[in-house]
Write a protein that binds this DNA or RNA. Sequence first.
DNA 1: TGTTGACTTTAACCTAACTGGAAAGTGTAT
DNA 2: ATACACTTTCCAGTTAGGTTAAAGTCAACA
Lengths: 266, 266
Amino acid sequence: MLSIGEFSKISNVTTKTLRYYDEISLIKPVHVKDNGYRYYDVEQLKVILLISKLKLYCFSLEEIAEVLNNPHDDVLLCSLIKQKQHAIQEKMNNYQYVLNQLGKDISNLERGIHIMSYLENIEVKLVEAGSKNILSIREKMSVDDYGKYMGKLFETVAKEKLTISGTPMSIYHDKEFNPESNDTEIAIPVKEAVKGTRELAGGLCAFGVLKGPYSELTSVYAKLEEWIEKEGYKIAAPPYEVYLTDPSTNTSPEEYVTEVYFPIKK
Amino acid sequence: MLSIGEFSKISNVTTKTLRYYDEISLIKPVHVKDNGYRYYDVEQLKVILLISKLKLYCFSLEEIAEVLNNPHDDVLLCSLIKQKQHAIQEKMNNYQYVLNQLGKDISNLERGIHIMSYLENIEVKLVEAGSKNILSIREKMSVDDYGKYMGKLFETVAKEKLTISGTPMSIYHDKEFNPESNDTEIAIPVKEAVKGTRELAGGLCAFGVLKGPYSELTSVYAKLEEWIEKEGYKIAAPPYEVYLTDPSTNTSPEEYVTEVYFPIKK
DNA sequence: TGTTGACTTTAACCTAACTGGAAAGTGTAT
DNA sequence: ATACACTTTCCAGTTAGGTTAAAGTCAACA
């Protein structure tokens, strides 16, 4: 039997953490004296070792508890580990992108170029957008669902034998930003007017183009808004984006070209 | 002037977050009506854009505040970004290691090998350790300081022209684990008995070897402790590690060889 | 002008995975 | 017997917000 201090020293887990794990029933000492002193069994070292391993793999304590409650379910464990493998791979990709961006900023700063000066290169134009007939789905969704709904639209196009007359778009109906559930309309311009299609009104628009990943679109929004206020216009309808790059051809996000339209009026 | 909803939509930051940033004075609306309604200026879009960028770079809100409070200090900004660059690189290295480990576990699990079965391959031996004369520094330190203190020891060796008689060691005097400040003694065996050296007592030890990164040492501790209890011994003195691999030759952590000794008695 | 519905406010509480500190009680070596 | 190292519980705090409720306000339409 090991006191909490001994158990802590051997397992490289602090006593604070061990008491917390006891509290949440992740690993309970095999014996508790009447005065509350905790005593662990050497066998429990294997358990705390597993906990530490899974924590390294970015498991939440809740997920670890699930694994510990099903000690012989190696299929469950394996599928959870594969999930984490995927998640960590995603994080690494993201960090790789961040390192690129950050490297550019460092070399700019060392040349005396201010970090936000890239905004000056975003051009805003006043355009007259033509009205379009679009096949669309409007739903509360997260950004991750765009692909799914886009797929549905293309299915409909195929089934109904519609004629595509432009690149995919999304229209933002929300009044504020919400990453989990935005009121978004995913659309493709088509020739035919059938069930599921509608007319997207044309008119005066503030217009900008982005070459780069979608995460940089907010800079274009900001520039458009700045321009709209400076020129004395007001936003007249939900803004929309037009995706000129087909994401199914595996172009890198750096090469994506996206148009942004803010319908406006005086 | 933009309402909080408009500002949120354009900047892709939720209204909740904006209110929180107001509360902590990270970015305050340029005007607040008597009824409490917040109104932002288009110019503030650049500020929130910068905040989002720095958040992507893993800045804490406190660090971002520091940057915003020194808007023209590009040197400060650049040095902070470089810090983050380093930190992110570290994280990626760590994730790379995790992906390797996790990949091994997946392929093991798919072959029906249990995730903790590697423990069975750790061998424990009973040895009689000889006593050693060591030059050492004992201090409360974190693992990150090991190199620093080791460097000091080597300086002393050089200055005093001592004769090294073994590979570096560390002795753990703490009664429990504490990552920030462990009562650790960093040591090198030397021939001469001078100021700063002492005798490390020999005697019966439970002994194990690890080939691999230091983070896996806990598995060896656990095995040793299990063996000690099973054989009816008790720990008699602080455990110590002997580093057979010279970390200054750039061996990969996978190749490190470390011995672990737990001095014991009946 | 009135009304409706969308927008905004504050306040209080919740999250994960702990950490820190205080005050009191306990174990063990001398 | 005493000292002191070890352990206990309890409470508050950390980051960066999210959730919910109840109340107040705005703007557009009739």
